[in-house]
C-alpha cells in the first residue's frame, strides 16, 4: 500500500508544484492519476521514488517511509517515465539483464519473465539489437518489460501508453490488471481518459498541485463520463 501524506513540493524558482497532497493506493488498486499539463502529476510520481525531494509530508510504502528507507522501498517498486531514457549503448537484453541484477532476480525467473513479456509486447526478435536502433515505442516496451520483470509490489507509470502500438496497448492493460489481481498495485498518469475510466478502480484528479478529486471510479463518475467530470472540474 502506498500512502502519500500531505506532500508538498516547491521548486527552487518558487513554483509550488504539489501542495499538501494526500492519497492512498491500496494493494490491488489500479489508480489512474489525471490532470492538465503542469498540474503536478509527474512531480508527485517522481517524489514517490525520491527522484525529487519534497519539502514536507511523507510517503510510505507498506508503512515504511521512503525518506528513511529509500532502498528498501525501491526494491518493491518499479518506474517507467513518460520519455523512455535508456542506455543506448546496450542491447535490449543487456539492459533487461542489468535491471534484473539490480532487483536481484534469479536467472531462471528472469529468463522466463523476459521471454514471456517480450513475446506479449512483440519485442522477442528485437532483444539482441542495440537500444539506439529502437523506435520510441520499442524503447517504451523495453522499459515496461524491465518494470514488470521483477514483479514489483507497486508499479508507477508516467503516461505509459504513449507510443505503443494497439496490440501492446491492450497487452499493457492486461498486464496491469494481472499485477493488481496478484496483490500488487499500479499508479499511472495518463491523458487518455477513456483508458483511465475503463481500467482503473480508483481515480485521482490533480489541479495546480492540489488533489481536487480522489476515490473510487464509480463514486467520482456517478452518471457522467470521466471526460465530463474532468472538464467540469477544470472549469470548462
Amino acid at each position: 500500500m502506498l500512502e502519500i501524506k500531505n506532500l508538498t513540493k516547491i521548486y527552487p524558482n518558487g513554483k509550488k508544484a504539489v501542495s499538501n497532497l494526500s492519497m492512498t493506493v491500496a494493494d490491488g488498486d489500479l489508480f489512474g492519476f489525471i490532470g492538465k499539463n503542469g498540474a503536478g502529476k509527474t512531480t508527485t510520481l517522481k517524489a514517490c521514488l525520491t527522484i525529487h525531494d519534497f519539502n514536507s509530508g511523507d510517503i510510505l510504502l507498506n508503512g515504511i517511509s521512503i525518506k528513511s528507507a529509500p532502498l528498501e522501498c525501491k526494491k518493491k517498486m518499479a518506474y517507467v517515465p513518460d520519455s523512455p531514457i535508456l542506455e543506448t549503448y546496450l542491447t535490449g537484453l543487456q539492459y533487461l539483464n542489468f535491471i534484473c541484477d539490480i532487483y536481484d532476480v534469479s536467472t531462471h525467473t528472469r529468463r522466463k519473465r523476459i521471454y514471456d513479456l517480450s513475446e506479449r509486447l512483440g519485442m522477442k526478435d528485437k532483444l539482441n539489437d542495440l537500444i539506439s536502433s529502437y523506435s520510441h515505442g520499442m524503447k517504451q516496451k523495453i522499459s515496461l518489460i524491465g518494470a514488470f520483470a521483477h514483479d514489483p509490489l507497486l508499479l508507477i507509470l508516467d503516461e505509459p501508453f504513449v507510443g505503443l502500438d494497439p496490440e501492446a496497448f491492450v497487452q499493457l492493460k492486461c498486464m496491469m490488471k494481472e499485477l493488481c489481481a496478484s496483490g500488487g498495485s499500479v499508479l499511472f498518469s495518463s491523458h487518455i481518459l477513456d483508458v483511465v475510466e475503463k481500467t482503473c478502480n480508483k481515480i485521482g484528479i490533480i489541479q495546480n498541485g492540489k488533489l481536487i478529486k480522489n476515490g473510487n471510479t464509480k463514486d467520482i463518475l456517478g452518471t457522467s463520463d470521466l471526460e465530463d467530470v474532468f472538464m467540469e472540474l477544470n472549469g470548462e
Binding site: 542491447t91 537484453l93 543487456q94 533487461l96 539483464n97 534484473c100 541484477d101 532476480v105 534469479s106 536467472t107 528472469r110 529468463r111 523476459i114 532483444l127 539482441n128 539489437d129 542495440l130 539506439s132 536502433s133
Partner: peptide, 16 residues
C-alpha cells in the same frame, strides 16, 4: 541504423 546481421546470441545470466 543497419541491423547487425547474425547478431551474437546473448545469454541471460545473473550477476551481483
Amino acid at each position: 541504423f543497419n541491423k547487425r546481421k547474425n547478431a551474437k546470441k546473448q545469454l541471460l545470466k545473473k550477476s551481483t
